[in-house]
Design a protein around this nucleic acid. Sequence first.
DNA 1: CTAGGTGCCTGATTGC
DNA 2: TGCAATCAGGCACCTA
Length: 279
Amino acid sequence: MPELPEVETLVRDLRGLILGAEVARVQVSWAGAVAVPSARRFAAGLKGRRFLAVSRHGKFLQFDLSGSRCLLVHLRMSGHLAVLPPGAEPVLYTRVTFHLADGRRLAFSDPRKFGRLWLVDQPDLVLGKLGPDALADELTAEAFVRLIQAHRGAIKPLLLRQEVLAGLGNIYTDEALFRVGIHPLRRIDTLSAADLRRLYGAMREVLEQAIANRGTTLPDARFRDAWGNRGDNLGHLSVGRRKGQACPRCGAPLERTVVGGRGTYSCPACQRQAASNCD
DNA sequence: CTAGGTGCCTGATTGC
DNA sequence: TGCAATCAGGCACCTA
């Protein structure tokens, strides 16, 4: 499931591949993939545009196009983008194909059909609801502490809310909480500012390490970079998908629970529930 | 406000 | 063995 590091990996790859390229024609194979506008207007509106910039906001990819238009892509669960050389076999589950003027294709594939694309004049119409990006320079440790302390309830579900903090998903949230020994259900009001500063540091480390490793490709997942290669970060996960295996810090068997409806991996010894949750 | 549920989807996994 | 039921999961949306 692409989270911030996987999206960043794709952004960096695509930047090198398609900047300056012109869209000759767009083929929408599944109209549901286009959120805004209609599939027909989406295809027509992209024709003849050039890719001027590629960036990322949380898990959204942003492609700035000539003519002051903007293509936004969210991969959700199983979406992917790949640049195919002329004559390459089509990718399975391709939903939208951008035929480039130089003969290559940018293919958006998505078996689960959760991913969406937008063609807009103002990206803020879609991105404006997002909280600060988890790796943004402006998100200092102090800003992070204030951001978290503005909310109540359990820490993990809050970290997953994109309108609060953009970019974290299930895997890296679990990793960051493990690194600082905080239980996923720990109530925010029981965490000190020092706890939250440490969580901030762990979050940035986990994300930056995953980007350096070109993302995490889970055994049963499909994430690939723009070249079709798997990410190398799987072996660097401490708890993710390691139910029953030994905690890398204390050796206790790691457990899988459900928090906020999401599979959650943690160490029952290193990440104890706060006492205040039990009174 | 937060918590908890449902629907969207389909490949993989589980159950009988 | 084989088929059907269930699960996973990001996000929007709904209700309590």
